[in-house]
Design a protein around this nucleic acid. Structure first.
Lengths: 233, 233
DNA sequence: AAACTGTCAATTGTCGACAATAGTCAAAAT
DNA sequence: ATTTTGACTATTGTCGACAATTGACAGTTT
């Protein structure tokens, strides 16, 4: 997507990164939300944040606006910015959208991927197994996201990838909220195999079925755990 | 989606709307982009805009940030904000995403809509016919968007609706760019009927097929016209 | 005691200012 | 003639300041 006008004339130097304060701040706040360091409904105190970042309030506010239309924070006039709250319904919506998105992405990908891409996916599944062996649950969750992101990327549709990335942040936040309660890591790795098989076989129906199962299970589990968590508290 | 904490205590007064400068500015700029009043790659001159709005630059910049993560404008450090350019590829991506989104939305909707919703859709198609008779092409395009938005809304998934709205802005911008070259208005109205029929019959396969056809045709037409336009200029 | 009212500190929304940078245009050099 | 250099201007990125508003708390009334 839009590789922009690199003013580079083909020389051997790489452009030094422009600091871009706002983007940096937005990423940090976004990560903090995804990782649960900023909790739902928590208010973003502009002054405090700006002091932590060592800047003035202006870039912090702009970063907050960025996150706002991404849905990560909501603004209430004269009251400020708040970390958006996640309800079980929200999570269901998020996973349902992801389901539709990935079904479509995979279908598109099926038509254009070659051996290289399939190998990459296979490697990624290997990684999931490896992490299951090592017991690195956190890292496995992250690499799971990477797998599905690859699928979206292989659709060749930049817009789909962008929506996936937005969703991923929310899913991460949801999982973080729930805590590390999760399925058996080996089973998680395994459930990716049917997807790969269907891709290899170029079988659309099987692919849809495998993905549908995979994501619906994740959805139901996350929603269930989330509801249970809320009932307790 | 988070109806927020209305401080209203159930009295008979409705809360007066807080001006919310930033949102207002963002909407105006967004509309200007969708309507082609701000052309692709055009620079957003902050000073000029702030003067037009009668404000300072701060709220304009925040509005631009809002639009940025929505993808409507891009920011280049130290160079400012620019209206994003649309390539034929971008448009194809947009319509392909819309296709996947709406297929899924419709499938979800199928499970939960009742007679009231179906009637509403039927009415909307009536409106399309009426506008075709009147020759109101512009308005028909808009009401076409409304029809598909209803479909997304009936999915009951707020997140899907949000993505659709984002896409709609881009599609509008694309159509505006192309100009009013378009299909026969009556045919456009007609192609909505199979969708309605499938919904009435609660037939998922037919529904998918009808939608797929409908949207794919729109996609191919828009992309074709867009490419043709670019070749000429 | 409960509800209401007035006061006050904390925080936001917005502004104008200023340094740093990018683009422009003409003059100089090759 | 094309390219390079060097000022100059327009514009951005960021800051600190200030008025307006909110939420909290205490005092007052019923």
């Amino acid at each position: 997507m839009a590789e922009e006008d690199k003013t580079s004339t083909g020389g051997s130097f790489s452009p030094l990164q422009t600091t871009d304060l706002v983007q940096q701040i937005a990423r940090q706040i976004g990560d903090a939300i995804a990782e649960g360091r900023l909790k739902p409904a928590e208010r973003l105190n502009e002054l405090r944040l700006s002091q932590e970042f060592g800047t003035s309030r202006a870039p912090v506010r702009e970063a907050a606006r960025l996150l706002e239309s991404q849905g990560l924070v909501v603004s209430s006039p004269r009251r400020g910015f708040f970390v958006r709250t996640l309800s079980a319904e929200d999570l269901r919506d998020i996973y349902d959208l992801r389901l539709g998105l990935e079904l479509h992405a995979a279908e598109l990908a099926l038509e254009k991927i070659g051996d290289a891409e399939i190998s990459a996916l296979e490697e990624q599944i290997q990684r999931l197994y490896q992490l299951a062996d090592e017991g690195s649950v956190e890292e496995q969750i992250f690499q799971d996201f990477v797998f599905h992101r690859m699928l979206c990327k292989f659709s060749g549709n930049a817009r789909i990838l962008k929506v996936y990335d937005d969703l991923a942040t929310d899913m991460r936040a949801g999982i973080t909220l729930i805590g590390k309660l999760y399925d058996d890591p080996h089973r998680i790795a395994e459930t990716h195999l049917p997807i790969l098989d269907a891709l290899k076989a170029r079988d659309v129906a099987k692919l849809r079925e495998a993905l549908h199962f995979h994501i619906a299970v994740a959805r139901d589990q996350v929603v269930l755990l989330f509801e249970r968590m809320n009932d307790v508290s």
